[in-house]
Amino acid sequence: MKKIMIFGAASAIAQETAKLFARDGENLFLVDMNIGRLEAVRDDILSRFKTKIEIYEMNALDFDKHQELFDKAIQTLGGLDAVLIAHGTLPDQIKTQEAQEMIIREFNINCVSVISLASIAANYFEKKKEGCIAVISSVAGDRGRQSNYIYGAAKGGVTTFLQGLRNRMTHSGVSVVTIKPGMVDTPMTAHLPKSPLFAKPGVVGKGIYKAMLSGKAVAYLPGYWRLIMFIIKMIPEWIFKKMKL
């Protein structure tokens, strides 16, 4: 029985991954910013599977409580085997680019808090010489586009950070999994018109579960995004800068 902490556990994608681990009988420590949501997620899982679930209310922006959170999780579950960092926001690009304080806030949520949590996890697992750190980044971090570059840059920062962290942690037998979902049909994207490229949270959640079990370095979810992003990255900058993407 493994012990897994999920940060941003009330997100539609993380819930799906949590259910699969619960089905396997793993113990879960679920963190999100609203206790009512966490209770709903916990009840949903426990009415399906027999396992142990702890819930913990915390805002990712409370940086100085990050260490305390890990101490609490390790104490409650009696150790940790894996961490999934899944929280995030999708800001409105136009509104955000016009307001400096919003840019900083988005970076703090989608990049700084993620790096902070992953760093604490890394220091713990490095000593243990085993473990798994999985983080939801995004295909948006692969190349900056005018329609979404603040979110994209924050995710790009996470992706680059995880590359370096993976390089460091491999020597300690710890896997670092970068998850790059494309567009997913969740409350976060409810306001966007849907296209056939949108994936269901269940599909992405299962992809994360599998990637964490196998310790895969980078998982594009669904897999076709690897090809799409390969093509987008191949476009020369002098052409790309004139495109409306």
Binding site: A40, V41, D43, D44, L46, S47, R48, P187
Partner: peptide, 17 residues
């Protein structure tokens, strides 16, 4: 989107969602 299970009482087959 109110799509969660809430509880299942196996003894009586009572399901809440």
């Amino acid at each position: 989107n109110l799509s969660k299970f809430i509880s299942f009482d196996e003894e009586n087959g009572l399901f809440r969602c």
